[in-house]
């Protein structure tokens, strides 16, 4: 039986203005952690303050220590609470949860496309799939919102970086670079995570280029384990659509099946 264990914060440091990286030890898991899986973290105590857990993607699992890393934007009260945790503090973690990215053996060339905080889970995808031909296209609004790639950079053959204001890397959008580079990268699978507008465009381009894709989706969550039905995402099945659960049917879905309204 799994329990949501009280785990230990090893470090919790700023990596950009409003973005922190936390290392957590003591998270029990029976199966190998897959890219796209997330931790459901309880901010504060049970009765006073916040109630719901916050879902945050696993951005790395350190091979030597088993420490799991998350990279999070301090957005509202929940993530602000997390940002106050210090090394040695306990933290109530449920997970790893969700269906991560599983690739067939015939996928040899993986392209990671990430926008904003959506880059976080792709960093672990880079480590996990480092044995493949691996390329990455990552974009942010500006230098102040970017996520340093850290170790993940060394796992990829080529990395393209862009910002909308041009303050770091190319000026423009990840989808501009995707269009420009798709011919020389020739991926046989795209794994993308980011804002809806970006995913929508990646989906359109994947259809145009005839590429298979997986998207890691986000939706507001309750339980994280599949019982409350709050985390609905529109998915196409047999010509119709249905609401599936991001927390346990996803967060990783076949990108071509995600229905954007």
């Amino acid at each position: 039986m799994m329990t949501n264990t009280i785990c230990r914060v090893e470090y919790n440091d700023y990596i950009n203005k409003n973005i922190k990286k936390m290392g957590i030890s003591g998270i029990e898991h029976k199966r190998e952690v897959l890219p796209g899986q997330f931790l459901h973290i309880k901010p504060g105590s049970d009765y006073h303050g916040l109630l719901l857990r916050r879902p945050i993607s696993i951005s790395d699992v350190l091979p030597s220590t088993g420490i799991m890393e998350i990279i999070y934007l301090i957005k509202g009260p929940g993530t602000a609470e997390l940002s106050r945790l210090k090394p040695g503090d306990g933290v109530d973690v449920l997970g790893p949860l969700g269906n991560g990215l599983v690739l067939d053996d015939n996928v040899k060339n993986l392209l990671l496309i990430g926008g904003g905080m959506g880059v976080a889970p792709l960093l672990y995808a880079a480590r996990y799939y480092k044995h493949l031909s691996l390329n990455g296209i990552f974009g942010w609004r500006d230098t102040g919102s970017l996520i340093p790639l850290g170790a993940a950079k060394d796992f990829m053959d080529r990395v393209y970086i862009c910002t909308q204001d041009g303050s770091t890397g190319h000026r423009g959008l990840v989808t501009d670079i995707f269009c420009e580079r798709v011919e020389d990268i020739r991926p046989d699978m795209v794994f993308a995570c980011g804002p809806v507008a970006m995913l929508k465009e990646v989906q359109r381009l994947c259809t145009r280029f005839g590429l298979d894709s997986r998207f890691s989706m986000e939706e507001r969550m309750g339980c994280g384990v599949g019982s409350c039905m709050t985390c609905a995402c529109k998915i196409e099945r047999d010509g119709n659509w249905q609401y599936e659960r991001v927390c346990c049917d996803g967060p990783v879905f076949n990108g071509q099946r995600v229905v954007f309204d």
Binding site: L50, L51, L52, E219, R220, M221, G222, C228, M229, T230, C231, A232, C233, Y243, D261
Partner: peptide, 16 residues
Amino acid sequence: GNPPPRIVETPSGIIN
């Protein structure tokens, strides 16, 4: 069911 978002946290409660 209804279109998402379907849940929001409010002081000491949730609305679904």
